[in-house]
Write a protein that binds this DNA or RNA. Structure first.
Lengths: 136, 136
DNA sequence: TTGCGTGCAAAGGTTTTGCATGGCA
DNA sequence: TGCCATGCAAAACCTTTGCACGCAA
């Protein structure tokens, strides 16, 4: 069994991720945020902690097409059951939508029955354009 | 209107992409391939040409979760109508599946009608586990 | 006191850029 | 000949790693 310590840096970073659970946050964003408010956190600390949070399934790691270089992270909101639904992301504005929808579960079942492929809702993000951006 | 020249490097790279249209190819793979067969191509040339092919919608650029660092490219096969269907990718073995399936079109319509979100099949990849890897 | 966490700097891998040269049209 | 393409090297990014020091338990 692994042990881990509670530190100021870790609780601050986790809190920041929780506060921004509706967004996709990059490591750089986190580092900049804490630098701006006057409590800088080391790069390595951020990356290492993000890695372990991903490992513990506390947050998710994404790589989005529009932000090709840097990885995004998102807190997994258990109250919102983020573990059991898909996410859609607008490629224009970055809006993240939680898709609680039976239809996609049906599709998932169909694909498993007919195409013998088990979809992973944690790794899949549906990309497209949101209502607001469609209007423009 | 932009002009562009036909060069040996460009036709070789494009041909290689066409020959591997059923795979997700990285820039490194291309560079290594041409080095191995004795007609090396410059890194910058490969990256610049890939960029313009993406821009012209001749190939697609992907970033996959399992290969977090490098981008993958895939030739858009018009004969296979790759422009009008989704792709599924196995996160275990990398197998790429072309999903010609009415059910997902229904889902796409449903999401557009009910959730006001227009899915982009070019940017979306469904991740999961293929039949072979499920057996293991 | 123990040993994990932190943070700096350096290294690693991927991609981009500057610039002189090469080659298509 | 005009201009785009090439390719080398250097730079720019994002991320990881090594190591000495700090700090939670």
């Amino acid at each position: 069994m692994e042990r881990s310590y509670q530190t100021k840096q870790r609780s601050r970073i986790l809190e920041y991720l929780k506060d921004n659970k509706d967004k996709h946050i990059t490591a750089e964003t986190i580092i900049e945020h804490f630098k701006r408010i006057g409590s800088p956190v080391g790069k390595a600390t951020v990356y290492r902690y993000l890695d372990s949070l991903v490992e513990e399934n506390v947050i998710r790691r994404y790589i989005t097409p529009e932000n090709s270089t840097a990885a995004c992270y998102q807190y997994i909101d258990d109250e919102n059951n983020c573990k059991c639904h898909y996410h859609m992301k607008c490629t224009k504005c970055g809006l993240l939508i939680h898709l609680n929808c039976e239809e996609i579960d049906e599709l998932s079942n169909h694909i498993f029955e007919e195409h013998k492929f088990k979809l992973d809702e944690c790794k899949t993000i549906l990309y497209g354009t949101c209502a607001k951006c469609l209007e423009k």
